[in-house]
Computed example of a mutant assay.
Amino acid sequence: MPERPIRLFGDPVLKTVSDPISTIDDRVRALVADLVDSVQLPGRAGVAASQIGVNLRAFSYNVDGEVGYILNPVIVELSGEPELVDEGCLSVPGLWYPVKRYPFARVTGIDLDGNPIELSGHELMAQALQHETDHLDGLLYLDRLDKENRRAAMKEVRESNWF
Rank of each mutant, 00 (worst) to 15 (best):
2 P>G: 07
4 R>C: 07
7 R>Q: 12
7 R>M: 13
12 P>I: 08
17 V>A: 13
17 V>I: 15
18 S>P: 00
36 V>N: 11
37 D>P: 01
38 S>H: 06
42 P>D: 12
45 A>K: 12
47 V>A: 09
55 N>A: 13
57 R>K: 15
58 A>N: 07
65 G>D: 14
65 G>L: 10
66 E>K: 15
67 V>K: 04
68 G>F: 10
68 G>P: 05
69 Y>L: 01
83 E>C: 06
85 V>Y: 11
87 E>A: 02
90 L>H: 13
91 S>F: 07
92 V>Q: 06
93 P>S: 12
94 G>T: 06
94 G>N: 07
95 L>M: 11
100 K>G: 00
102 Y>K: 05
104 F>E: 05
106 R>T: 10
108 T>W: 00
111 D>I: 00
113 D>T: 06
116 P>N: 12
117 I>R: 03
118 E>A: 09
124 L>Y: 10
127 Q>F: 04
127 Q>I: 14
128 A>H: 00
129 L>R: 10
130 Q>K: 08
138 G>T: 03
138 G>Y: 02
138 G>F: 02
138 G>V: 01
140 L>Q: 09
141 Y>P: 09
142 L>P: 04
148 E>Y: 07
150 R>N: 12
152 A>W: 08
153 A>V: 08
156 E>F: 07
156 E>H: 08
161 N>V: 15
